[in-house]
Nucleic acid binder design. Structure first.
Lengths: 109, 109
DNA sequence: AATTAATATCGCAATATTACGATTAATAAT
DNA sequence: ATTATTAATCGTAATATTGCGATATTAATT
């Protein structure tokens, strides 16, 4: 026990939950918002702006990268992160479909 | 350490990540999909349909309920769960705004 | 009142996450 | 070459999550 039983769920359910999991932390929401606002890439300014240690920020960036939500390229001595357009659009459409599939309130509960 | 430092983030960042966290598990995605498909309320059929123990399902339902995503009313000996319309629409619009704020790919990264 | 049913809760083991200091790796500047 | 800068990784402590068997709770049924 202690580990998620992914084998009993569909590929899609596992994929969607893994994307959501990658975003399900206030620091990672903050990082994404920062990347979205600056539109162009940002680097390690995050460490100054969020109140977390450098090692912690790096770990959060890694998780977002592993999930495919952001991508980073080395830019001299620093690293430049930005949204992965492909994943972003795919996730957006999957989530959109998910939320849209709710057809109003049936009078129960 | 080991606990999220919510105090350094905004109310909105904490709220959004807490909603996402509640959904970030394949079993809870499956539960939501099942509720969405049946449109009307569902009861404890979940235990038969997903391959998880009754205690585990009950725990997942509790998490979705605590996050405000679903609601349940006692229906005789069983409990009837369905989407919480208010939270659903709010989350949908928050997420929509979040994803829409991405303005295409800038040529970097 | 006793029995059945459907859920919730408790307690526990296994594993995962969060955070950070310390260290390492890699490039830029002196 | 040495030094500074930036980011990744390692190791570790504290806490959270996942899953389930066992037990408790609640309401209907007999």
């Amino acid at each position: 026990m202690g580990l998620t039983r992914t084998e009993i769920f569909t590929e899609e359910q596992n994929q969607l939950s893994s994307w959501l999991k990658a975003m399900a932390h206030p620091a990672r929401i903050a990082i994404l918002q920062r990347i979205l606002i600056s539109n162009t890439c940002i680097c390690g300014d995050l460490v100054d702006e969020l109140g977390l240690a450098q090692a912690t920020i790096s770990q959060h960036l890694k998780e977002l990268k592993n999930a495919g939500i952001i991508q980073g390229t080395i830019e001299g001595v620093s690293v430049c992160y930005c949204i992965n357009p492909t994943t972003w659009k795919l996730l957006q459409s999957k989530l959109g479909g998910f939320f849209d599939s709710y057809k109003g309130e049936v009078n129960c509960c």
